[in-house]
Design a protein around this nucleic acid. Sequence first.
DNA 1: GTGAAAGCGCTAACAT
DNA 2: ATGTTAGCGCTTTCAC
Lengths: 339, 339
Amino acid sequence: MEKETTIYDIAKELGLSASTVSRALKGNTIINARTRAKVEECAQKMGYRSNAFASNLRTRRTNTIGVIVPRLDSNFMSACLAGMENVASKNGYNLIISQSHESVEKEAQNAITMFNSRVDGLIVSLTVEHSDLAYFNQFAQKKVPVVYFDRVPGNTPFACFVTNNEKAAYEATKHLISQNCARLLHVTVDSQINVYADRKKGFERAVAESKNCSGSIIYAASLTFDEGEKIALEIAAMKNQPDGIFVANDLVASGCMLQLQKSGFQIPDDIAIVGFNNDPISNIVSPKLSTVNYPGREAGILAANSLVEQLKNENTALKSQRVVLESEFIIRESSLRST
Amino acid sequence: MEKETTIYDIAKELGLSASTVSRALKGNTIINARTRAKVEECAQKMGYRSNAFASNLRTRRTNTIGVIVPRLDSNFMSACLAGMENVASKNGYNLIISQSHESVEKEAQNAITMFNSRVDGLIVSLTVEHSDLAYFNQFAQKKVPVVYFDRVPGNTPFACFVTNNEKAAYEATKHLISQNCARLLHVTVDSQINVYADRKKGFERAVAESKNCSGSIIYAASLTFDEGEKIALEIAAMKNQPDGIFVANDLVASGCMLQLQKSGFQIPDDIAIVGFNNDPISNIVSPKLSTVNYPGREAGILAANSLVEQLKNENTALKSQRVVLESEFIIRESSLRST
DNA sequence: GTGAAAGCGCTAACAT
DNA sequence: ATGTTAGCGCTTTCAC
């Protein structure tokens, strides 16, 4: 490694002290404007780059925000991250992103890594697996703010940003009913996490409200396209087949729909289908999938903003708020019956 | 921020010196095994966490690898990153990931940020836009190794990991010809970057080799589904329509194919289509898309391994190698003609 | 096998 | 407006 230019080198070059250089470099207005200009020019010329470690060591801050998400290969998550990155970089923070791959152990491990690398704050979307979240306590103890989004715990000292899953699911199910579906089915994953638990609640409420409607539930092992196909085979083998399906996620919905078609069902006339998330795939499958548009980018922006806000007013107690984002139901071909 | 436990606290507690504690903590075998055990236990009990900044400041290494990619919301990229993360964490490195969003300016800015945060090494997949890559020179100057993968420059002092785009494209085109396609079309993006330039070359070579075959090219403005749809409309409006299309990417291919169907074309009988990447969408669209399987995870692993290797043998000259990964052609319905 | 001491580059309280 | 000074917590010679 070559020798790096330090503020001392600049100071010596200019006949100043290191502190003056330090102050000048961060634009402190207490320093004479001419001096500031001189310092900056010299720094440029000498190829100076600030040493974040020395600075972090001194200030005990890292200007880094940790992000833990189940996976980052969904369109929804990309949108969330893009929103976060925007807010973070605008406020001088870097993002460290890690995936839990839906495993509680990996989530815990990532949390520990983040903790040890001393992120200033943490943004988390939880795994489907249930967890006691104990590994986030250490952050609370050190007054490191945590913000949850999308997949959030029911009860937490930290801020949460979610969409109204219950309401969205209720609307989706009501829509199916309005399309003359009477034997409703909800395909989801068996999880206590809000997103799926609340969608189930919304489904059940809508079914309960409507006479002449029955509702049942099938649990997928995971939220993949392949699982959707498997479920479709199960459905095809049922004696009392559903005529309207609300699926907790577009990927599963697509797999399910395509396989149902292969099994000879007409979509939406034999079976109407609604998904969730407005993943690009929902617009690509044939027929196009009705779904719920969940504003990921906005969720990311709000979550990151909340965190940055808490970071600014340090020493304030951590904020425990719960913000609900509006979603929007999108009707497409998969649930729009001709009858 | 609460007071953190330091090695001095542990040293005092145990009546040792800080140096001994430091050595014990990193498992230095010169320290008595009993002492080591005692130190570790005490560290645990006191909630010690190592301060990476102090350590980095001292050792001038960050144990961090920077990654710059065009976007991370494709399945291919997720696979690459997963492979890298695996190798990195196995070797004690963290990954900092950033997106260039296909813009040279953002790529340059990301490179500078990475440089200033003193990543130990850099892994890059370039933008489609052409660039002089000058912003990577600073890494070479400081002997910070850079490794390119997938989208790589033609001529560089750094290592490159690519698939054989030319050969894969050649095979894909030959396949179309074997399906009795005679008016071939290549849909790609107008870029000098290897992936697209080489695919074009492969296409052209295959066409040139076959008598009775004509080949033409349409450039998409970007590699999106929507662009594919637009191109399809162009094709539908052509006088001399193609009967076989090789598209540089599955997303564009899907958009194109679905829109062609809407315009009344039978796929594959009127027009056969082949994509590239084996994106999950290629298996979801109807008809299923023939494509080239490009092993992303493997590419990520190899690139990260190469970097780690170079990091280990520091002071060695940077390695300038070019490794070519094998891809695999997958034939599905979109190009398999009944005739 | 263990300790003493110096210093990595920066910041911030306290001078002037 | 600028300088002096004292660390932040760790690693690493060089001693013993």
